[in-house]
C-alpha cells in the first residue's frame, strides 16, 4: 500500500505493533528449539548423537563419561504405545465419522459429535487416573502386572479417537454434495457411496487426522506416565510395562542435574523433531488434498 503520510500516525504504529506481535508468535517455535538446543548442548558435545542409539541402555549418571544414554528402549516404548493406540483408535474413529455423516439420524449424529468434542476436552490427567484405577487392575487380573503397553494403548486410543474422528468428520462434510448426489443418481447404495465415493474423496483429511492423532499420542505424557509402568525396556509383549520418552522426562526432571538433565533436554529435542516431522507430513497431505479438491 502506498505511503499515506510521512508523519507518525496511529495507523502506522498499530500496523507496526501488530506485526511485531505476529513475528514474536512465529518466533516462539524457533525459541523453543533454541532453548532445547542450548540446554542439550553439554551432553551433545560430550557424547555426540550416535551414542543415543549405540549405548547399552539408559543409565544417565551425573557425568557423561560414566553414563549410558541409549534412548532405544524409550523410543520403543513411545512407538509401541502410540502404534497400539492408533491401531485401536483409527478404525473406530473412521467408523464414528461415517456414523455421524451417513448412518445416524441427524439429531443423534449431532449429539454424538458434541460428545466427541467433550471427550476431546477431557484433561489427559483424568484419562490417566481412570486408566490407573480402572483399566490397570482389570488387566492385572488377566495378565499381571497390568500397567503395560496395552493399558497405555487403550487409554491413549480413547484420548486420540476424538481428534481423528472430528477431523475425519469434517473431511467427510467437505466432500461436495454434488459428488454424493452423482453417486446416488448412479443408483449406488449408501454403503457404496460412503465407502467407495465419500471416504476416498475425504482421504486427505482422514490421513491428516490419523497423523495428528499419532503426534498427539507420541507427545502425551500424563496418561502414559500413570498407566504404562515406567520400566525402561523394549517390550516383548503388550502386557509388559514400558517407559516412554515423555514419561521419562516427567519422572527424572525432578532430580536430574548436570549431564543427566542435559540429556533429558536432548530427549525433549528428539521428541519435538519427531512431532514436527509428523505435523509437516500432515500439512503436506492436507495441502495436496486441498489442491486436488480445488481442481476437481
Amino acid at each position: 500500500m502506498p505511503a499515506s503520510a510521512s508523519r507518525l500516525d496511529p495507523d502506522r504504529l498499530l500496523t507496526g505493533g501488530l506485526r511485531l506481535c505476529a513475528a514474536f508468535s512465529a518466533a516462539l517455535l524457533i525459541l523453543v528449539v533454541i532453548f532445547l538446543l542450548l540446554q542439550a548442548g553439554p551432553v551433545l558435545d560430550a557424547i555426540g548423537p550416535w551414542r543415543l542409539f549405540a549405548d547399552d541402555g539408559w543409565f544417565p549418571a551425573d557425568t557423561a563419561a560414566a553414563g549410558q544414554f541409549s534412548i532405544v528402549a524409550l523410543l520403543a516404548g513411545s512407538g509401541a504405545v502410540a502404534f497400539g493406540a492408533t491401531v485401536l483408535a483409527a478404525p473406530l474413529a473412521i467408523a464414528s465419522a461415517v456414523f455421524c455423516r451417513f448412518v445416524a439420524p441427524p439429531r443423534i449424529g449431532q449429539l454424538f459429535r458434541r460428545m466427541l468434542e467433550v471427550l476431546a476436552g477431557v484433561p489427559s490427567v483424568v484419562f490417566g487416573f481412570w486408566g490407573l484405577v480402572v483399566l490397570v487392575p482389570l488387566i492385572n487380573r488377566w495378565q499381571p502386572p497390568g500397567a503395560s503397553v496395552l493399558a497405555g494403548a487403550l487409554v491413549l486410543g480413547l484420548m486420540i479417537l476424538p481428534t481423528i474422528a472430528l477431523l475425519a468428520d469434517s473431511a467427510l462434510r467437505s466432500v461436495p454434495r454434488a459428488t454424493l448426489s452423482a453417486a446416488a443418481a448412479l443408483g449406488l447404495s449408501r454403503w457404496r457411496t460412503a465407502l467407495q465415493v465419500a471416504l476416498p474423496a475425504a482421504r486427505g483429511g482422514v490421513v491428516t487426522g490419523i497423523i495428528l492423532g499419532v503426534a498427539r499420542a507420541i507427545g502425551e505424557t500424563m496418561a502414559v506416565l500413570m498407566v504404562c509402568g515406567n520400566v525402561v525396556q523394549v517390550p516383548a509383549s503388550v502386557f509388559e510395562p514400558v517407559r516412554t520418552l515423555t514419561a521419562n522426562i516427567a519422572l527424572e526432571m525432578a532430580y536430574a542435574y548436570g549431564d543427566h538433565r542435559s540429556a533429558l533436554f536432548l530427549t525433549g529435542l528428539v521428541l519435538t523433531l519427531l512431532v514436527i516431522a509428523l505435523v509437516l507430513v500432515a500439512e503436506l497431505g492436507r495441502g495436496a488434498n486441498a489442491r486436488r479438491t480445488a481442481h476437481g
Binding site: 503426534a215 507420541i218 507427545g219 505424557t221 515423555t246 526432571m253 533429558l264 525433549g268 512431532v275 509428523l278
Partner: peptide, 24 residues
C-alpha cells in the same frame, strides 16, 4: 511463515513446553 510456524507449535508436546518454560 507465521501460519506454518503456529501449526507446528500447536503440535509440540506439552512436556516439551514444560522443559522450555523451566529453562526460560
Amino acid at each position: 511463515l507465521v501460519r506454518r510456524s503456529l501449526d507446528v507449535l500447536a503440535g509440540v508436546p506439552s512436556i516439551v513446553f514444560g522443559l522450555f518454560g523451566y529453562a526460560v
